Simulated assay, not measured.
Amino acid sequence: MTERTVKKTKEPRGVQSIDIGGHILEAFVAASGPIKLKDLSDLTGLAPGKLHPYLVSFCNMKLLERSDHGWYTLGPFALHLGLARLRGLNPYKETLKRVPELAEELGLMVSLAVWGPFGPTIIHIEERLDPIHFNIRVGGVYYLSMTASGHVFTAFLPKAVSAELVEKEFSDTEGDRRRYFQVDRGWFEATIEKTRARGYGMTRDMPTPGITAFAVPIFDHSGTIRLAVAAIGPNELTDDEGHERIVDCLTRFSQTLSQDLGLPNA
């Protein structure tokens, strides 16, 4: 056997003092309020004598502010940095970049929906390698009453935003279809409460028999739901064992992306 030398890719070398400074600023984000030097030392594991020069520099840059009583808080330049980051973010593009990896990890179809004039409107579908036959298309609109994405939007939008479309849907010609699935107002309202409490929506065999869907919300920095991300697949791939894995994966995706979009404590 020919022996080969495997070259390890080295991580680019950074500036240690900047890395330490970033660690200090992370502690301020975690603290979410004013903090004293001693407490900051406990949080970062850095001695007060080592911390102090960093704090002086950060105050000079207005990344931090120091009160007359010795409390440190994030300063106005930190706010400007955060706002610059938020202005440069596009929730739809950020989500689209991450969806292929999500679909591959889950092994399921993934759809993205935004709130439109007619309800949850599909803007992207990420097929898996083995496509499933499920009647959704880009530009289509999910039912509010009978889909996981519809449940998520109804649960997390202000009621005044969705109420008119909910009323319209419950009075339209799909009444027979809802009765087939035993979807009445009482069931719907209880399901929306459950969706809000657990943070995700789920439907099984509805509106298409043999298909299960899970959906999670994506929030922006203001806490407004911007998208619903749904994982869709045959029931046999989403059984009890698959259920937990899918929910964990989608929840992580939702929390990480929402946090990257500026949602506090996502």
Rank of each mutant, 00 (worst) to 15 (best):
V114M: 08
V114T: 14
V114K: 12
W115F: 14
G116C: 09
G116H: 09
P117Y: 09
P117Q: 13
F118Y: 13
F118R: 15
G119R: 12
G119Q: 13
P120F: 06
I123G: 07
I125L: 14
I125W: 09
E126C: 10
E127W: 15
E127G: 02
E127L: 11
R128F: 10
D130Y: 14
D130S: 11
I132P: 03
I132M: 11
I132W: 14
I132K: 01
I132A: 10
H133G: 12
H133N: 14
F134P: 00
F134G: 03
F134Q: 02
I136A: 12
I136S: 06
R137D: 13
R137P: 02
R137Q: 06
V138M: 05
G139I: 03
V141H: 07
Y142Q: 04
L144H: 06
M146E: 08
M146C: 07
T147K: 00
A148C: 04
S149M: 06
V152K: 04
V152R: 02
F153N: 00
F153G: 00
T154I: 03
T154R: 06
A155C: 02
A155E: 03
F156G: 00
F156Q: 01
K159L: 06
V161Q: 04
V161N: 04
V161I: 10
S162K: 05
S162I: 04
E164T: 09
E164C: 02
E164N: 13
L165T: 05
L165Q: 10
E167R: 14
E167A: 13
K168P: 05
K168M: 14
K168G: 11
K168I: 03
E169M: 04
E169R: 00
E169I: 03
F170D: 05
F170M: 07
F170V: 01
S171M: 02
E174C: 05
G175F: 12
D176S: 15
D176Y: 09
R177S: 11
R178W: 05
Y180N: 05
Y180F: 12
F181V: 06
F181A: 13
Q182L: 11
V183M: 15
D184S: 08
R185Y: 08
R185I: 09
G186R: 10
W187V: 14
W187S: 06
E189M: 03
A190L: 13
T191D: 14
I192Y: 04
I192Q: 00
I192K: 06
E193S: 15
K194W: 07
K194C: 06
T195C: 09
T195W: 00
T195P: 11
T195M: 09
R196E: 12
R198L: 07
R198D: 03
G199L: 11
Y200M: 07
G201A: 10
G201L: 08
